[in-house]
Structure formats: structure tokens, C-alpha cells
């Protein structure tokens, strides 16, 4: 596979953990505690993909109404990361038109939509086909559509989850699309055995059977004080001055690889999030 096919998430450190970024044909999962930047990372990946090539399209399946077009617009217009694309003449209108949003609030709606998508992709010659050149499909969030259906005694939820993932994987392989799935976190007592840090008290939701589904699973947690021993470089409130000379307070978060089919497990990085920016420590220094 060509290296250029790999889609960057917009954050260098996280790309590194993912062997370059989101790989077409693979299902990448980002899960994590609330307010650790899962959706921000999804927005960042959306815009980075859109800006990488003037034909690229992104499909965002929104199940918890987190998608904010206003936010995407602000990110594109104000984040330092997209300066380059703006300079190259990519307009706001063009960028916004290449992002498609589908609002689905239960799993049946998602199923219906995905089948419709497959129909569209199969009949490529159709005029005004809005889905040709879709490079990235994001589902935010997977947990919200499945958690009402998952229980020890309920098999239907599990079977739907596996069916949907299989369909997504087929689409991904056949049309060279990267799939990014956002998952939530649940409490894990006394700690999370897969995490590198013994103080992590949560784990990805959706249960055991889900852990076999994605190719890569990233897990985001808050970087609270004392979380990492012997690490001196963490700044709790990093003040970043952007190009417009506005100071933004950035909060540190940790991203670790919980499992990966082709990369190294157990790797982690600290990234900073705040305002319109998202970057790792290396980028600052």
C-alpha cells in the first residue's frame, strides 16, 4: 500500500502510534473517558483528510449530535494547522461541501444508512454521486447506539454489532476507505489491566466481544498529576500562543495503544488539547 494513502489524524504523536495515521481498509477505534478529545480528534482527522487532497471526502455518522458544522468551520479558518491548505486556495465552501453528515440515532438507522451507502458506492456512474471519493468514515459514537442493546442475556445487540462492523470492514477493504469508530469508556475496578498506567480506572465500553473487532484500539485518558511517574515534561496548563497572538490554555491528555494488529502495543504519547489546537509535546519544543 502506498504511504500516501494513509490518512493523518492531524496530530503527529498520534499518527506515530498509528504507524502513520488511519489506514484505508482498517477499522480504527478511539475510545476514552469523557472530555478527553475523542470528538476533537475525529474533527481533526476530518479536516486533515479533506485538506490533504482536493477530491477527498469524509462521511461523518453522528449518533449523539456531537457534530458541529460551526466548529468545523472555525477549526478550518482559525487553526494554525490548516494555514497551508488555506494558502493553497482551499475555500471554506469547498471544504464544507466535501464533508457529509448523517444523523442516525439508533443502530437500525445506521444499518439502513450503510446499506444505502453501499448501493451508492456500487453504482459509481450515477450522476451527482455524493459518496465517490469518500476516504474516511467516522462513527461518533458506536457506544451510544449499542449500549442500550448490550447485556449478558441479550444476544441481538452483539450480533448487530458484529454484523455492522463486518459490513463496514467490507466497505473499507473494497473501496479503500479508512473507518474511524469512536467508543466510550466505562469504569474498571480496581484498574484497567491493559493500560500501561496502573492508575487508569476505566476501560473501553462494549464488552469483550467488541475487543476483537477493530484493527487498532487507541485509548485516551486525562493526564492528571502523578499519573505518570518519572515524567518531568508534563505541563498541567500549557499556555500556547497561536499565530494571532491569542493565548490558549492547553490541557494534557494521554493516548495509548491498547491493541494493534500491525503496530506495537503499549506505546503511548501525551498530547495537548485546547482552543483550536491539538498537538504533542515534540511539536512544542
Amino acid at each position: 500500500m502506498l504511504q500516501t494513502d494513509v490518512l493523518s489524524t492531524g496530530c503527529y504523536g498520534i499518527d506515530e502510534l498509528l504507524q502513520g495515521g488511519l489506514h484505508p481498509g482498517e477499522v480504527t477505534e478511539i475510545s476514552g473517558e469523557t472530555a478527553t478529545g475523542k470528538t476533537q480528534l475525529a474533527f481533526s482527522a476530518t479536516l486533515t483528510t479533506i485538506c490533504a487532497n482536493k477530491n477527498n471526502k469524509v462521511l461523518f455518522i453522528d449518533t449523539v449530535s456531537t457534530f458541529s458544522a460551526e466548529r468545523i468551520r472555525t477549526l478550518f479558518l482559525e487553526s494554525d494547522r490548516f494555514d497551508h491548505s488555506r494558502c493553497q486556495g482551499m475555500g471554506e465552501e469547498d471544504v464544507m461541501n466535501r464533508i457529509r453528515i448523517a444523523k442516525c440515532f439508533d443502530v437500525y438507522a445506521v444499518m439502513e444508512f450503510i446499506e444505502d451507502l453501499r448501493d451508492h458506492l456500487e453504482n459509481k456512474d450515477k450522476d451527482d454521486n455524493v459518496y465517490t471519493n469518500v476516504k474516511l468514515i467516522i462513527i461518533d459514537s458506536f457506544a451510544a447506539i449499542f449500549s442500550p442493546l448490550l447485556g449478558v442475556t441479550q444476544t441481538q445487540g452483539h450480533s448487530l454489532m458484529i454484523t455492522l462492523t463486518r459490513i463496514l470492514r467490507n466497505l473499507a477493504k473494497e473501496y479503500n476507505i479508512a473507518v474511524l469508530v469512536i467508543n466510550a469508556a466505562i469504569a474498571s475496578n480496581p484498574n484497567n489491566p491493559i493500560s500501561v498506567f496502573s492508575s487508569t480506572k476505566s476501560k473501553p465500553s462494549l464488552g469483550m466481544s467488541w475487543t476483537f473487532m477493530p484493527d487498532v484500539q487507541l485509548y485516551l485518558t486525562h493526564c492528571v498529576e502523578n499519573k505518570i511517574e518519572n515524567e518531568k515534561n508534563i505541563q498541567q496548563n500549557y499556555v500556547y500562543t497561536n499565530r494571532k497572538e491569542i493565548e490558549v490554555i492547553m490541557k494534557p491528555k494521554i493516548c495509548e495503544v491498547h491493541r494493534s494488529r500491525n503496530g506495537q502495543m503499549g506505546k503511548w504519547c501525551i498530547f495537548y488539547m485546547g482552543g483550536n489546537e491539538l498537538f504533542t509535546h515534540d511539536d512544542i519544543i
Binding site: A69, R73, I99, R100, I101, K103, A109, D116
Partner: peptide, 16 residues
């Protein structure tokens, strides 16, 4: 009715 998608510019207009 089918579930359809909209573009981000349409979403922006709706949000506003």
C-alpha cells in the same frame, strides 16, 4: 423514509 446525509454547509445553515 431513507436516512440520508447532508453536507457540512447545509448543516451549518441549519445550525445557524
Amino acid at each position: 423514509n431513507k436516512v440520508t446525509s447532508i453536507s457540512a454547509s447545509e448543516a451549518l445553515q441549519q445550525e445557524r
